[in-house]
Nucleic acid binder design. Structure first.
Lengths: 195, 195
DNA sequence: GCGCTACTCTAGACACTGTCTAGATTATAG
DNA sequence: CTATAATCTAGACAGTGTCTAGAGTAGCGC
């Protein structure tokens, strides 16, 4: 009936890629399995072979998101490895930029899971926070501070908050940059000596 | 056919109240206009008289949320008005507790609006941030600091981040309290003297 | 009191969604 | 070459948001 090949070949990754762009451009509500299938020229039931659920697709997206974000922060921090302040600011910017560009994705990643989060997502989140701890570890070595765990949480939480406000349009890019620098200055001060 | 009165009387507030509880217990996805109507013993089209859209309902919820949150923070700050540290911590806790209890609501309040946010929501958000600025103003008067605007943003963004992590279960209540105190300590330090 | 208008609600329809099923098609391993 | 597993199709179902036409009701001016 149709001249397209029966097998798509790599439907799974095609779905993920397309879903990411829909999520970026039109938000979570506009993400429909059936529409994805239509756009990829495949029947409406096809995605089910790769994702049992709509939620399973979202989980896979979140998983990829965590890894991409970790990678972006690592890269940003490394490009300014010589100076702690610059490194911190660069990593923070990477976080915020990511969260602004992919706001809906970040919502997915940090969404409250009423039922337990999927194993894959939890693992990816673990890898992500391990990366943060690693970065904070190198920063604090340069600042002779201790308590990496608490500092990591404080830093990532602050980034997350700034990102939320920026993504929501509550603050503009310039204010966002100010916020980041204010926050980093605070971190550097408290890194030297903890109360 | 049915013995219920034709007019519900106060459908609008009944819808809002019920919607809030559904949002709390089962999340945004589980919030259905038709189900609300069924639960309130009213036809599926009835909500339309009060909310043109599902989005209009959500906007109204967000609006109420901003006002409730502002009220909670103001109360918390006032009950420890004698000490700046306690007052800050109390207000921060009020924020985080609210965001944990009503995580889905807070998501709604700070959701990215691809099309412009509704006027009512924007107004409520304005009132909320005015309250924050007011509180920060009294705190900073006690700390002889300036630049209330920047400080307000930094504080609320940090709260928001801690709240997100706590609501997502990423940190437990004890860690959440630690985070809040660490953050407040940072604010107090930077309140004295800005770089 | 009476009627008129504005508001509120009902009921049916439509297109769309996620999910489930049975079965067709293709790739792959034995 | 053939059995088996993976992949995809196509039809069905219940549920949803939204739109429509119209019925019921309250409150207003008179």
């Amino acid at each position: 009936m149709s001249d397209r090949p029966f097998h798509h070949g790599n439907l799974r990754s095609a779905l993920l890629e397309r879903a990411e762009s829909v999520l970026r451009d039109r938000g979570l509500d506009a993400l429909s399995l059936r529409e994805l299938a239509r756009d990829l020229g495949v029947s409406h039931g096809a995605p089910r072979s790769h994702f049992v659920d709509r939620q399973a697709l979202l989980d896979a997206l979140a998983e990829r998101g965590f890894d991409r974000l970790a990678h972006a922060m690592r890269e940003a921090a490394q490009t300014h490895a010589d100076d702690v302040y610059d490194s911190l600011v660069a990593a923070a910017h990477a976080y915020v930029d990511f969260a602004v560009r992919d706001a809906a994705l970040v919502d997915l990643m940090f969404a409250r899971h009423l039922d337990e989060a999927a194993a894959g997502v939890q693992a990816a989140a673990g890898r992500f926070f391990a990366t943060i701890r690693e970065l904070v570890g190198t920063w604090m070595a340069a600042l002779d501070g201790d308590d990496i765990e608490r500092m990591s949480l404080l830093i990532s939480a602050t980034m997350q908050g700034i990102a939320t406000f920026t993504a929501a349009g509550r603050v503009g890019p310039a204010q966002s940059d100010e916020l980041i620098r204010d926050a980093v200055n605070g971190f550097l001060r408290s890194g030297h000596r903890r109360t």
